[in-house]
Design a protein around this nucleic acid. Structure first.
Lengths: 113, 113
DNA sequence: ATTATATGTAAGCAAATACTTACGCAAATT
DNA sequence: AATTTGCGTAAGTATTTGCTTACATATAAT
């Protein structure tokens, strides 16, 4: 976390702690200490996770006095949703691309699994 | 990649190369060399990515002679889809959780919808 | 039988990741 | 004014990641 990396929403949600943070603040904004209370890791660790979530736009932080309220901007997850959705047809239909392919190149009978 | 890690679909799709591999084989099964041809990284590097995708069930490999055909099992992505979908209401409605929260604890007039 | 092809895997490495503790600072409280 | 609270950030570290090259092995082609 030393060098600044170009954050990506896919990478941001890869970490289970960050997904938990997202879940925690999805329903209600919380300040950083309140978030950190829900985890066994240290407050700075949570702070760093929040920073990553900010950098890819999932979390928006608004300062209120000395507190910083973390708000989830979940429309950022649209990018993930859109990516997954393009493959929805592949699990909705029973289309088996390998079987399809193999049937094309060889007409031998294949045992069902 | 030395020690075996407990693979997770969120972590698997975090890597852009792996997302490209998924996209490549979603429409047609391909053997490993054919996949590797589409990338500038080495064949072993692709092999390792495939291994990760296998370990979390996104890719299924079937041996055909000396070739290994990689088939995408995209229903594994349901897990991602389900996770994202639980937050869909938060970007479909105009609900601003921070404003909501602040209005509750500071003022008493909640005139918004 | 020899060679070419398709692939896995090990070893090594630089960079990234996820944490920790220590510290600093501004805002609130006393 | 002094202290407490909320937080960022730096430095250090162990582990993981993503890659490379080198090598091993099984199958296919010659």
């Amino acid at each position: 976390m030393s060098v600044e990396a170009r954050r990506d929403v896919f990478q941001a949600i890869a970490d289970p702690t960050r997904r938990q943070i997202i879940n925690l603040i999805a329903y209600q904004s919380m300040n950083l200490n309140a978030i950190a209370e829900n985890f066994s890791i240290s407050r700075p660790a949570v702070s760093q996770h929040i920073k990553i979530l900010m950098e890819c736009g999932i979390v928006l932080v608004r300062q209120e006095g000395r507190e910083r309220y973390c708000e989830a901007k979940l429309d950022t997850l649209k990018e993930v949703s859109n990516w997954v959705d393009q493959y929805r047809q592949f699990w909705n239909t029973q289309f088996d691309s390998l079987d399809h392919y193999l049937n094309r190149i060889q007409n031998n009978n294949q045992s069902d699994q």
